[in-house]
Design a protein around this nucleic acid. Structure first.
Lengths: 99, 99
DNA sequence: CGAGCTATATATAACGT
DNA sequence: TACGTTATATATAGCTC
């Protein structure tokens, strides 16, 4: 998206990499916000630059996103590896929640 | 970006919302991957659709991103609220790491 | 440097099937 | 309803200041 087409590989020149990082970081944060609003989704985005600096965006709060992520992952594990008497009822509950 | 300009507000029609969600989700994941590669950044993206389904992308692993996020947040707290004898040495260390 | 400025490359909204 | 298509809106690469 620009004057010339680029190949997606690490930008060697440090200055160019910083400039591109700044521009694209702004772009992806905007996209994340739009997705959250347009589609009523909960979005969490964490980015560490190559210099180690943290940038973040969450449509709600990062804590909320990470907590929910942990719970969702636990559910995935249970469904993939059912090993308790909760299997049947849990599967039913999950399926009924899906669109 | 399309046949018509849209306003960024929640899409009321459920079907349209799902379609837009699917397209934009793909788009933002692509952007996240490109940013990670081009700029040598560590990226973590978590999205919960309005139906509650989880979608995720991490340039490394989500665990790595979340762990690093937690550590970065702790550092931010320490720098913002210095309340220990570690203040001076920690500030020095952090500053020397910045570009 | 960091902040704009276009020309182009991409993403995607509105339609077709 | 889920997939292609394509006209348009956006993002952004390379420059300029």
């Amino acid at each position: 998206m620009g004057r010339g087409k680029i190949v997606i590989r690490r930008i060697d020149n440090s200055t160019s990499r910083q400039v591109t990082f700044s521009k694209r970081r702004n772009g992806i944060f905007k996209k994340a916000k739009e997705l959250g609003i347009l589609c009523d989704a909960e979005v969490g985005l964490v980015i560490f630059s190559s210099t180690g600096r943290l940038y973040e965006y969450a449509s709600s709060s990062m804590k909320s996103v990470i907590d929910r992520y942990g719970r969702a992952k636990e559910e995935q594990q249970l469904v993939a590896n059912p090993n308790s008497e909760l299997k049947v009822s849990l599967n039913c509950d999950l399926k009924s929640c899906r669109s």
